[in-house]
């Protein structure tokens, strides 16, 4: 039998805080976030990078955390849905999603929010086509996406009205 892998020490910034975890090198970022750091807003829908429910920002890029071995995250900056709102106030994107009916059962919502955040960070004034493309890696079975797209457009308007 092969010897079991040893755990590695990983330091990263998660939602603005320095974190150090000990995990097997091929542990999924998804599991480390959910189980070690109890950030259960990060959801597992498929475990193979299709549904986007586990989307987080890693060094500003949108990634499926189910596909990232923890070894790759050394020194990185991770933002999850829990890191979007500062304090008790929702951020404009979250509020827009609520107002427009973009969250139904809510299980895809954290991933949708991260994908939309990533899009708006890169493109503060996206077209509808940009939004449809930007969310196309996140499956939602409830909404048919229409009200999610409305919400991202609305968030863009509200954020640019600052």
């Amino acid at each position: 039998m092969s010897t079991p892998p040893t755990q590695c020490e990983i330091s990263m910034t998660v939602n603005g805080e320095k974190k150090t975890v000990h995990a097997f090198p091929m542990a999924r970022l998804l599991d480390v976030l959910r189980e070690h750091l109890r950030l259960t807003g990060v959801k597992e829908g498929c475990g193979e990078g299709e549904c986007g429910s586990c989307s987080v920002l890693m060094d500003g890029n949108l990634v499926n955390s189910c596909l990232i071995p923890i070894l790759q995250t050394q020194g990185s900056n991770i933002v999850t849905v829990e890191g979007l709102a500062q304090g008790p106030q929702l951020e404009k994107l979250q509020q827009a999603l609520l107002d427009c009916g973009g969250a139904q059962c809510g299980i895809c919502t954290p991933g949708i929010l991260m994908a939309a955040r990533y899009l708006l960070n890169r493109k503060p004034r996206p077209t509808l086509e940009d939004i449809r493309e930007g969310l196309s890696g996140n499956l939602c079975r409830c909404t048919g996406y229409a009200q999610i797209c409305d919400a991202v457009a609305e968030a863009s308007v509200r954020e640019n009205a600052l």
Binding site: T80, V81, L90, Q94, L98, A103, G106, P110
Partner: peptide
Amino acid sequence: PRKEGWDKVTG
């Protein structure tokens, strides 16, 4: 507003 909406958009 959806009753449980706040919980859903904050994770």
